[in-house]
Amino acid sequence: MLGQVLARGGRLPCVDCARAIATSSADMVNRAAKYRSTRDRSQLLTYDMAMRPHHIGVKKAWLTWHSQNLEEFRQQQPVTLTQDEIVRRFIRGFFPQHVVVHGNEVVIKRRGNVLFVSGFLQYSKRLDHRRIYWMFGFVEEFLSLVLKQPVKLELAFVETEDDVAYNYI
């Protein structure tokens, strides 16, 4: 932009105004939620990651399901957002050995007054069933007590993260 101004023989703006000018080249490509490919095709993509943002609602669904974005239903949008963040952080922090793709694909669904947490976990080194059941019980109760509504986990297990891979780029 600066080049264009100078080329037209225009005057440079004052110092204060210069702050508002971006001198880097304008790049209109939308890069959000699109993954860079690697030379050795080692970047794992799940189905959700492989689909583009404009495919939401077409080829893939949302990671959180609630009615707060609908007209006349926006009583507690911020609360819903906060709840989502609490759930995601807690799941990531409580199952660090088991989450796949860094716990980014935990789906939160609301049916009635119940909040369901869906997604995949991996076996990790050794799958201790009793430990997993204890953790599930703890998480369900802990999140229920925090959010003041019943929380249920619907997490399924895969052997390794590779099992959720849709593509490698």
Binding site: H129, W134, M135, G137, V139, E141, L145, F157
Partner: peptide
């Protein structure tokens, strides 16, 4: 992988989940 097959496994898993809930409580 998580569905118990024997009565003993059912007992252990059920109790483990319940004790997890009790810990949170």
């Amino acid at each position: 992988a998580m569905i118990p097959s024997t009565a003993a496994a059912k007992r252990h898993y059920y109790m483990a989940k319940e004790l997890g809930k009790r810990a949170a409580r």
